[in-house]
Nucleic acid binder design. Structure first.
Lengths: 123, 123
DNA sequence: ATTATATTCATCCGACTGGGTGAATATCTA
DNA sequence: TAGATATTCACCCAGTCGGATGAATATAAT
């Protein structure tokens, strides 16, 4: 549940074009809030909010130096997301492979054609 | 912009534990709305809403057969998300590599230590 | 001490979300 | 025809989002 909750936050943080652009910018290196906000038409405050959201998801880290706040990327959450996706894709591929194998089997084919597909997998 | 908008929808659709569980279930094969809803404590209507959201993001496809609605996975959006993440991770790795190379350089080290890190990358 | 810069805090707004309930629709079955 | 099943539609509610604005805070520079 905790892991899922973290994934929730990470996915939600990534579900915004502006925030993804901020992350892409940060991939070029550390940057201050003002630097990050510069290319965007929206207000500095809005960018600040976006950054807070990215922080909450653990995607960026903040380092204070005087009045300047330096942001940098954290890759762990992104790796977790990638892992989930890969697992999902693998499961999907396995299912496709199973279907393929089934279709190559001899007697099951007729039943499959008469019936409506895969379905009854669980209970 | 259109691609970004699609990514927005996909990420948003994935930013929910219930919806991710639905997708995982669908990885086992086609299923009806009722079948998908069975394991969850929430109402059937809520599940129906989640499914609609997954459909909007293009993550599932619906096939009608009489009064039954059969859902199945669509992998394209997931692939797009994976591609974005991989690009991001690659950029981040490149930046790390550049830093590493810089630290192995001779004269830049002093300036780097005195100054505050990477920062001034863009302008 | 004063001014300028960097950033956040406090509010407000319209829009959307996730959950619920009850009614409506459509299809299958007896 | 009547009844059961599968699914959605139409609302309601509290919570959050993304954007804006204006004020507050903290640090730096003069």
């Amino acid at each position: 549940m905790t892991a899922s909750h973290k994934l929730d936050d990470t996915f939600a943080a990534l579900a915004d074009q502006t925030r993804r652009a901020l992350l892409a910018k940060l991939a070029e290196g550390e940057a201050r809030v003002t630097d990050l906000a510069a290319p965007f038409a929206i207000s500095l405050n809005s960018v600040s909010k976006h950054i807070r959201r990215l922080e909450r998801a653990g995607l960026v880290h903040r380092r204070l130096e005087g009045r300047e706040h330096f942001l940098s990327l954290s890759t762990r959450p992104l790796n977790e997301v990638a892992a989930w996706i890969e697992a999902q894709r693998r499961a999907w591929s396995d299912q496709l492979a199973a279907l393929h194998e089934m279709l190559q089997g001899e007697d099951d084919v007729a039943k499959l054609a008469g019936r409506r597909g895969l379905r009854r997998v669980k209970k």
